[in-house]
Amino acid sequence: MDAQREDRRDRELLRQLAGGDAAAIGSLYDRHATALFRHGLALSGHASDAEDLVQATFVKLAARGPLLLGVRRPASYMHRMLHAEWIDLARHRAVAREESIEGELPGVQPGDAAEALDVRRALAALPERQREVVVLHVFNGLSFREIGRIAGVSTFTTASRYRLAIDRLRLLLGER
């Protein structure tokens, strides 16, 4: 029920955005930027790339105009756009996706607790696709079906990636 109400509110904001209302961008940013940033972080492994992905997503959203009127699930739609942006970015840089996670830990800041550092290191060690599913499911609360739509794979594949990721995280965090 809450999800439907949220979707309705988001659709109203998209309608305003399609009508040229600049204030709608701020409202949409406040509602979705954190989830989109986490998604970007999960895909790229770099905070700076995640920022670029969020920015590119909102710029494209603003340019869509009347196309936004037909969007039924705005949150899912924005995550799909971010996913597509990441594919473009990775292609342009000719970066192999599985290698791109090695450089930086996702979302680690100075002063983080040791437990948080451990968990984030373990997340960083996951392959990008598995990390994307974990972040979208655990942190953003999306269902496997929604994640499948965003990533362009089946629900079964999404669930399978998640299971593999959780098994690996358990191993990395010493839970077995």
């Binding site: 954190t34 972080l41 905070a47 969020v54 920015q55 909102f58 984030r120 997340l123």
Partner: peptide, 20 residues
């Protein structure tokens, strides 16, 4: 639950202005 409690950082405060 362990993952959730560790949390992930959000976007930096200045990103909102840049995006808008």
């Amino acid at each position: 639950n362990r993952l959730r409690s560790a949390g992930l950082t959000g976007p930096p405060p200045d990103l909102r202005e840049r995006v808008i």
